[in-house]
Write a protein that binds this DNA or RNA. Structure first.
Lengths: 333, 333
DNA sequence: CCTGGTTTGTACAACGTTGTAACCAACGAT
DNA sequence: ATCGTTGGTTACAACGTTGTACAAACCAGG
């Protein structure tokens, strides 16, 4: 059976509140009373009822992390770091899978808020500032692209700079016909737009003409999409000598398609990705990529949320930039 | 501001309980009262306080899924399916990352139970039956190997049979020096033991002598461990012509090590894995593997938990076996 | 021995919800 | 006319916890 403060109190011969005080580490409890209470707690294997505590305190000790898909390695790795960082603040993380659609994201953002959650770390794809407005001031930190200039805190990586750097690296390898995989025209494609901007900037700096035929769209950023886009590029006859894929799973798909068509990487075509997921360190060939500091991103997000919860709830929203670096491996050494 | 039943009641000119009745879909509410209340709910953007509801009802509507590591693709994919299946029952899933150590798992199993959770789906590595005993009857479904004959419901795949089948397939390819990667002597290695059993059984059936030197241990089942184990096998001079890796990430690591040593897969060495993770469908070469029906596993687990919660809390524990099949691809066609 | 402060403990009332019991009206059956 | 029955609504009391206010016990210093 489950025991309550009352049971412990009776057993220890004190009042309910005294037990509560012991449980909460209140200072002024005589040593022997405290000992009696603690003994009773152990004997009864007492555990506080969190629902009751939450009701009373108005805090739940749970924050949510909402990501589009858990089985996209980038989000899984990110989730791990967030869980770790949150644990240091004594929070439990409720991981929510939005699916990435606008409707589901809206639902996740608002529906979750039903008092189960103290705050939210949200990695939105489709969400607009309007959607966020309906959140009744739920403390929130956004990851990834800014949603217009929404009212929420933000952790980003400098997508444009990163994309420019990795593209410039491909240029530095002597490549001139550099393709891009992953462009998106939909509103969800904020990351895609920024990375495309960086790509074109790097080409311009190198004096290479932008060729629309070298830019392949990808509806989602899964391996299958990367493979399909690569096959499409190869079929059109515009033979690239390098490809910058807007994330690593796209790149792994592209590697696969290149392999199937008998092209060698990096000899015939160099390949670069974005995210630095674990897979890319063991793929054949290993993957050159932009490595955002995921641990840092997670830590910053949790700290922003912590500030928002404890200190100024109405402070102006902050935007922090997490560092990135290039991880150069076999596919574009 | 956050509104309460009371606010809605005042606005609609009814009692708190009537609003509660409307919210909970109680039948006997006059159409016009219901309309008035619903209007007030919308106007105030009322959301029930779940902590209060939970306190009152003794249920939270949240189940936990505890897995060793989120960024192991198998668990991420499984998590996705569990979230989906749970949503159909109206549950939210709190995903917990145990880290796989005995101490942390114990903590996850017991600590989580602080009334935040109606039930638990647990994929333990290190847990023993004793650990589970301390759980005060928290409804629980275990995934993976049975923990002795613990008191909890169980969803498993037939590891022995599956390992036997995939090994037999390697035999069928004409391979005779078939290595195994992933054996573990630790108590956490229940899956490893079962898969090793299936492997040896298949060898015995084929009349192939068991060679201890062909069995490589792996402390964890990550890509790096697979690569290291493969390198070790190759360095000892016992040249295998096939490898059965106890999971896919090990196999991907092994592929990498084989590539580095200049061996061709499957020509020189055939490689097979276990789990059928997404990566294996795009690796070079694509990976032959045992494909457990992850969606089914998740669905069964959720349903077992649902039964346990609604019906007989004291029914004898059940064990369900989820189906598997062989997914034969390039690495061992 | 009193005074005034601190320490230690208690009673009570919330937090927001829902189950129970009860009430009042309107109804058809006796 | 009287009696149940049903539909619609309400008041009240819980669920288990903690903040507030206060009482009792204790400790110094005069």
């Amino acid at each position: 059976m489950r025991h309550r403060l009352k049971d412990v109190a009776e057993r220890a011969g004190v009042s309910v509140k005294t037990v509560s005080n012991v449980v909460n580490g209140y200072q002024h409890v005589r040593a022997d009373t405290r000992a009696r209470v603690e003994a009773a707690i152990v004997e009864l294997n007492y555990r506080p009822n969190l629902s009751a505590r939450n009701l009373r305190k108005g805090r739940t000790g749970v924050i949510a992390l909402a990501v589009p898909e858990l089985d996209i390695p980038y989000f899984a790795e990110l989730a791990r770091h967030v869980v770790t960082a949150a644990a240091e603040h004594g929070w439990t993380v409720l991981i929510d899978q939005t699916g990435g659609g606008p409707e589901q994201e809206r639902k996740a953002a608002s529906g979750i808020g039903d008092h189960m959650i103290d705050g939210l770390i949200f990695s939105p794809l489709a969400l607009t500032a309007d959607d966020l407005a309906g959140l009744d001031g739920m403390p929130m930190v956004l990851l990834g692209e800014r949603v217009d200039h929404g009212p929420a805190d933000h952790v980003v990586v400098d997508n444009v700079a990163a994309a420019r750097e990795i593209t410039a690296h491909l240029v530095g390898l002597g490549r001139r016909r550099i393709a891009a995989i992953g462009s998106q025209r939909t509103p969800e494609g904020a990351s895609a737009r920024l990375r495309l901007t960086g790509y074109t900037a790097a080409l311009a700096e190198a004096g290479i003409a932008y060729d629309e035929r070298l830019v392949a769209p990808a509806p989602a950023w899964h391996r299958a999409d990367g493979a399909a886009a690569m096959r499409h590029l190869l079929s059109t006859g515009v033979r690239p000598d390098a490809v910058f894929c807007f994330n690593d799973t796209l790149a792994l798909g592209a590697l696969r398609a290149l392999h199937e068509s008998g092209l060698r990487v990096p000899d015939d075509v160099a390949v670069a990705g974005f995210d630095d997921i674990e897979d890319g360190r063991f793929s054949i060939p290993t993957l050159s990529t932009v490595a955002p500091d995921k641990e840092r991103i997670a830590r910053l997000a949790v700290e922003l949320l912590a500030d928002r919860l404890t200190a100024d709830r109405d402070a102006p929203p902050r935007e922090l930039v997490a560092p990135h670096r290039l991880a150069l491996r076999e596919s574009a050494p």
